[in-house]
Design a protein around this nucleic acid. Structure first.
Lengths: 210, 210
DNA sequence: TAGATTGTTAATCGATTAACAATC
DNA sequence: TAGATTGTTAATCGATTAACAATC
């Protein structure tokens, strides 16, 4: 199952395949060909087959792909068959938004704790989860086997907090701070730079409307 | 100034250049060579020069690039010299998080209104902005010259609301709903699919730790 | 079996990197 | 002027698309 050297371009497309297959599944559709999927998703059928075949032959000649089976397989490839224990660091609106988002839990991403240094919200409950002071983070991470930390703190503290988290044994960081994090080998960082995204939109607005 | 046919790969890198140049500027650094920038940013000097030269020759042989000038130019390329009028559609935590994020306003993205159909929050103020009912959206968009709508609503209503917004004259949609939006030519959509991002992290956690 | 559609190899296209002449 | 570094062309690399033999 551990396939090596898959490019990030391919990996970036997997969640989208997963989403469309989930919709087909919910519609009760049993099978789909790469060509049909191509029509719906606006990518070439060739790319779909090429992408999938990085991980194995999930289809059948003359038939296509079984929707439910392919959905399950892609879920497995994405690691959605495993549970992940998450903490949120930074209980601002963004942190709260993520905790409240039900979809993550459905996919095996379980929020175990929320940490924030603001004494005003300390002790509050968000989505039934207690907001704890940062001093308790190390013990919490180690004891609860937290593997993913979600950084929704200002960029000023993000680098330092990320280093701490890594030293506590965290394996992945979902970074919303507007800064690039450098972490040791084996630690994964996935950054969501919201203002980068907005600037891209801004560029396309100015130049796309010639 | 309107350069055609720049690939999205290049455009995606511009905000990151902009960010690093801003930091250099704040540190009072006057000039930088592509090689120095390469060392800091972990991209090749060749790529930096190639990227920048899509838009013009901003450097000087034997000298490098003037930090402040290049910063300003990239800002201009990204359209940050122009003001954008935004509305938020969906006053949940995510919508509130974005409204409260001061950085956007600094870059010329001004939040003019917030819309939500939930009667419980209608009439509330968020960051000094009134939450209005969706029925007032059309008039508001047309009268205030809103050009960007931020969709922080569930995917169920996103497609329909996006269509409405386009018919009201919106030019860009910053989409946080977990659905792909299809819009007419000339309208720009920039999507932030948070769960896609989390799944990518999940994949890299499972496969990266072999 | 014939038809359909995959898996996979080969061809093309685009993006990145290297090299170097131009020039400050 | 000599040294440094860009702008730009050429070479390489990787990703996408096309084609088709394998096979259900």
């Amino acid at each position: 199952m551990e396939v090596k050297g898959i490019s990030q371009a391919v990996i970036s497309r997997l969640p989208r395949y997963f989403r469309y297959l989930g919709e087909l599944k919910d519609e009760g559709i049993e099978r789909v060909s790469s060509q049909e999927l191509s029509d719906i998703m606006q990518v070439t059928a060739s790319q779909i087959r090429q992408d999938l075949n990085n991980f194995g032959g999930f289809g059948q000649q003359g038939y296509g792909y079984n929707v439910e089976y392919l959905y399950e397989e892609i879920g497995r490839i994405l690691g959605l068959d495993q549970e992940h224990n998450l903490i949120i660091v930074g209980a601002g609106h963004l942190g709260q938004a993520l905790v409240n988002y039900r979809d993550f839990e459905r996919r095996g991403f379980i929020f175990r704790g929320i940490f924030d240094n603001n004494p005003q919200i300390r002790g509050m409950q968000i989505h039934g989860i207690l907001v704890r002071p940062m001093e308790e983070m190390e013990q919490f991470v180690r004891e609860k086997g937290i593997d993913i930390a979600v950084l929704t703190i200002p960029k000023e503290s993000a680098v330092e907090v990320a280093e701490q988290l890594v030293s506590y044994g965290i394996k992945g960081i979902w970074n919303f701070a507007h800064v690039d994090l450098h972490v040791p080998q084996g630690i994964q960082v996935e950054s969501v730079h919201l203002s980068d995204s907005l600037m891209k939109l801004s560029y396309n607005l100015s130049s796309g409307s010639i």
